[in-house]
Amino acid sequence: MRLDIRYRTTFTYENLVRESQNELRACPRSDENQGLISYRLQTWPSSKVFAFTDYWGTRVDAFGIRLPHVSLEVVAESSVETFQRPLLTVAPHLETLRDPAFISAHHEYLQRSPHADWGRGIEAEARRQRELVGDDVVSLVLAVHRVTGARITYARGATEVGIEVEEVLSQGKGVCQDFAHLAVALCRSQGIPARYVSGYLFTRDDSVGADVTDGDVVEVQTHAWFEAAIPGFGWLALDPTNQKEVGVRHVKIGHGRDYDDVQPLRGIFCGSSSPTVEPRVEIRRVRTNASPVFDRHVRDPQMEHQQQQ
């Protein structure tokens, strides 16, 4: 599926901000499930963007603005083609998780991390699932996926970054990264390597996964899901928020141990406090013969500095 994505975030500050330094992770990666066709980033005020690939393989755009400004707008536009994912054809035994080579290769995704740390509640839930499904890795991962959806309901603004997953589990509500962190923690507590994924989802409403007609533009947010390593297969991607397998409507930006490794925009600013933030993602499905772009955002051309991938 060919998708055009327009990531846009506007910060409006109360007073003049004299300096702002940021890192953006909004560019879809290219891998066996999707191919990046084009990417470009613009900021207002304009800035010189330095792009690199980080440890996790995610493209990072670093930019700083050091002249007084009261708002900062970041627009990243990409075109991406997503592919059908291969069908799962294996059903490895839980014992296969103990293979030293497998453990060594996935070591980082087996450890606790700040946002995917587990305590008794999570461990008990994971063990219960394990007893229910028997000794097959895939079944356990799917059970984790289902129970994540069953134990928490989506509630916008229910949580903030920094909340413990145990707390998410006990209060029973959260946003997409809480679903992903909980699923990751449940998997890891049972020795299944799992990672947090940041990306975009082309759908009108995450919670029902409603379909969208070709050519429609939908407004969404960046999304999060998780991937679990299945011995003999590779990474199985699941979207616990929507209780769906990850497919052609999911566009992956990157993965890591948890949110901190793939935070979409992190930075600091200096000179004012409490900005209002307006993040917005627009996604449009493109038929292959259609023009791949949105209407160009009209701006003062002198302020415009383009960074073309």
Partner: peptide, 16 residues
């Protein structure tokens, strides 16, 4: 010395 950090959550603001 008035540095502030930006945190932007997925699913924050308008949509999800």
């Amino acid at each position: 010395f008035d540095l502030h950090s930006l945190h932007l959550l997925p699913g924050e603001g308008g949509g999800r």
